[in-house]
């Protein structure tokens, strides 16, 4: 079942990339299309942040993940590279769980 998601997701993303090279510019080159395509990742990544931080089964829950997120934001403010940001969050959550 996971393979279906992996293959369908990959095929669609590859076709979207290729479409840019095939479709005549005028079809996609409208301000609304351009702005919306740029804003989609902003809305969805932001949604993914809160879902992955708070979702627990069907409900919401505050736990070590939130502390990890806070540390990640501090790391980003300090201009840390991506891997450091992710590691800092993981270590924070792991340490909190080991202590409590």
């Amino acid at each position: 079942m996971i393979w279906i998601a992996v293959l369908a997701g990959s095929l669609g993303c590859a076709l979207l990339k290729f479409a840019g090279y095939l479709v005549p510019g005028s079809v996609l080159d409208r301000p609304a299309v351009r702005i919306i395509a740029g804003l989609l990742p902003v809305a969805m990544l932001s949604a993914l942040v809160v879902v992955q931080t708070f979702a627990s089964g069907p409900g919401l829950q505050v736990d070590a993940r939130l502390a990890g997120l806070a540390v990640a934001i501090v790391a980003l403010l300090l201009r840390a590279p991506f891997l450091v940001v992710v590691l800092a969050a993981a270590v924070t959550a792991a340490v909190l769980r080991a202590l409590t």
């Binding site: 931080t53 990890g68 940001v85 590691l87 924070t92 959550a93």
Partner: peptide
């Protein structure tokens, strides 16, 4: 906890 951190770094 690394997953939301990854998303915020992309955002």
């Amino acid at each position: 906890a690394a997953i939301p951190a990854g998303f915020i770094a992309l955002l």
